[in-house]
Design a protein around this nucleic acid. Structure first.
Length: 574
RNA sequence: GCGCUCUUAGCUCAGCUGGAUAGAGCAUCGGUUUUCUAAACCGAGGGUCGGAGGUUCGAAUCCUCCAGAGCGCGCCA
């Protein structure tokens, strides 16, 4: 429990006991009462809106009520050493020295767990799931890193997390892909020109795969595509999954489970799933309306099995069968999600690219239907990564083959920088990724700033010839913080709140933003010694005050925990 | 036509379960180094929070409408 939670609970209890003293008729909206970090200029530790919340529901002037609550706080809560009323009725609170010391030591003791909000759920996070038709591109990297770090964050909070990759190794795209490999083989072996059909993948990596297959099997007669299809498919898929796994590894991402679409088909899971849904009357035979968007020449009015996703909030019902009666991608995907539900996770999360936004309603509907609304599928969308090269926008397309691959990016920029940059923005907004700019290894990169703060702390510890400190004997009488130290301590105290809010809505960008702010405070604290020698931390290889030792250890703990969640390295020396 | 996301300083973005004088970085201008790491720090200027209504004691934040940008809108995957 952090200081905000702890004291909020204390305040709740106090209000209930002292209801009459405060002349309150109604105690409602307790959930609206918050303990927050006050704006910096106020120089207080905590800020509470209680007088405004209770004032509204009891028709009392917030400021007058605040005055009474202030008395109560000072009288009854021993950790509060000063309380002042500000603005429309906020109560700004200073913590007592003993409370500060106690909290400092509790953080040092918690160490690598500091900030964790203990919950105990199970999560399945599906992410990347790039088609196995070639290497990953820059856009995939964003979702990959987001999913990976989301998993880390949930694990940090004590949950059990499975990171899963769904391999779409079935269907017409795969056929196009294998055909592309086939034509490249013909090109290499028989000098037949690669056809200019727009369903083929023109990327050069296809040639590499073709060469690999040729080298592995020199005797095979490749002249008949249909005859060799299964062999070519297996080899090609294997090759492209190898490419993808290699990219993932270079980005520092490890999935726990790779689940293949063809497994769904082979095990006939779709029929089983559809039978279940039929019994519940969520799947029925019927006709669909023509699509509302662009005209589709292939559209035919044929009776087929339909999932009634409108029952679960979708805009229209969805086809499970194609014209020829075979299953749609969606049908397979429902079966896959059925499997996930059956595996017993309490929470399902899908991380998707922006181009799959339109898919969310139907798959969420499907999970509701499968689980009788017991399991909610949470879909998070990562917006586009817009590439700029030579000052011009750079379009990515797997088919065109002119995308920038993860590999090319990794050749220029290290994995830590890519991870940090991809996360240093809300998933809801596009990222302008200036290829040339990111290539420059300059101080512009915020990751260096955080790493540098950590390196500076380690430099101090080296000078002091000490390592991490687990307990500091701070004497309440001597204990004194200057204004800068108070700011840092408050920032450190805020860490569990950051984790809490980042977890709540999966807002991962809050972590790098926070780490940057904390580093700013630390660099300022450090630099004071440059301006004025009295503020140097060390004298004759001894720390000047115990408070300094406490602060550098606290900052180190938080940076380490934060960067640990991001899985970005922290050099001790730079 | 419909759905999702976005619109905040010159640029890139935080802030959104309603609260205090709307914050950072970059860029611009001006300072700091015989050092515990200057890859750093300090200071200055810079705003009609896309527009219009509404709810409220109080709106960048919630609701409605409008405008602009992006992504989607198969029986592709």
């Amino acid at each position: 429990m952090n200081i905000f939670e702890y004291h909020l609970k204390e305040i709740h209890n106090l209000i209930l006991i002292k209801k009459d003293f405060l002349k309150l008729d109604k105690i409602e909206n307790l959930g609206k009462i918050n303990l927050e970090v006050p704006p910096e200029q106020f120089n207080f530790d905590l800020s509470c809106n209680i007088a405004m919340v209770l004032g509204t529901s009891n028709k009392l002037a917030p400021k007058k009520l605040a005055e009474k609550i202030r008395e109560l706080f000072l009288d009854q809560i021993k950790n509060f050493s000063n309380v002042e009323i500000a603005g429309p009725g906020f109560l700004n609170i200073k913590l007592s020295k003993s409370a500060l010391i106690e909290n400092i030591n509790s953080i040092l003791k918690n160490n690598e767990n500091y900030g964790s909000n203990k919950t105990n759920d199970t999560y399945n996070i599906e992410f990347v799931s790039a088609n196995p038709t070639g290497p990953m591109h820059v856009g995939h990297c964003r979702g990959a890193i987001y999913g990976d770090v989301l998993g880390n964050l949930l694990t940090f909070n004590g949950n059990k997390v499975i990171k899963e990759y769904y391999i779409n190794d079935y269907g017409s795209q795969i056929k196009n892909f294998v055909e592309s490999v086939y034509f490249r083989i013909l090109e290499i072996k028989f000098k037949k020109p690669f056809p200019k059909k727009n369903n083929l993948y023109p990327g050069l990596y296809i040639k590499d795969i073709a060469v690999k297959i040729l080298n592995e099997n020199k005797s095979l007669n490749f002249e008949d595509f249909e005859k060799n299809f299964e062999y070519l498919k297996n080899k090609s898929l294997e090759a492209s999954m190898q490419l993808i796994k290699k990219d993932l590894k270079l980005l520092g991402i490890n999935h726990d489970n790779f689940f293949s679409e063809s497994e769904i088909v082979n095990k006939d899971l779709v029929n089983k799933t559809v039978e279940v849904l039929k019994k519940k009357k969520y799947v029925e035979k019927g006709y669909l309306q023509p699509p509302k968007g662009e005209k589709d020449d292939n559209w035919k009015k044929v009776e087929r099995l339909i999932f009634k996703s409108t029952l679960f909030g979708d805009d229209t019902d969805r086809a499970l069968q194609k014209n020829d009666g075979s299953w749609t991608y969606f049908a397979n995907d429902i079966a896959y999600h059925m499997d996930k539900v059956n595996r017993g996770y309490q929470n399902l999360v899908n991380v998707l690219g922006a181009d799959h936004t339109g898919y969310i309603k139907r798959i969420t509907a499907a999970v509701s239907a499968i689980s009788e609304k017991k399991i909610k599928l949470n879909c998070k969308v990562c917006q586009l990564v817009k590439l700029f090269k030579d000052g011009k926008p750079f379009k990515m397309s797997k088919r065109a083959g002119d995308f920038i691959s993860a590999q090319e990016l990794l050749n220029e920029v290290d994995k830590d920088s890519i991870r940090f940059i991809m996360l240093n923005r809300s998933n809801d907004v596009e990222i302008d990724f200036d290829f040339d700019k990111v290539k420059e290894k300059t101080k512009d990169n915020p990751i260096f700033y955080v790493q540098y703060a950590y390196a500076r702390i380690n430099s101090l510890l080296r000078t002091l010839n000490t390592s991490f400190v687990e307990k500091i004997e701070l004497d309440e009488i001597d204990f004194n913080l200057n204004e800068m130290e108070e700011k840092i301590i408050r920032k450190v105290f805020e860490w569990p709140k950051i984790i809490e809010s980042a977890t709540k809505k999966f807002d991962l960008h809050k972590i790098p933003f926070y780490l940057y702010e904390l580093s700013t405070l630390f660099h300022a604290y450090w630099s004071r010694g440059n301006e004025d020698k009295r503020y140097k931390f060390i004298e004759n290889e001894q720390i000047k005050r115990k408070e300094i030792l406490a602060i550098i250890n606290l900052v180190a703990i938080v940076i380490k925990n934060g960067m640990g969640i991001l899985d970005v390295s922290l050099p001790k020396k730079m």
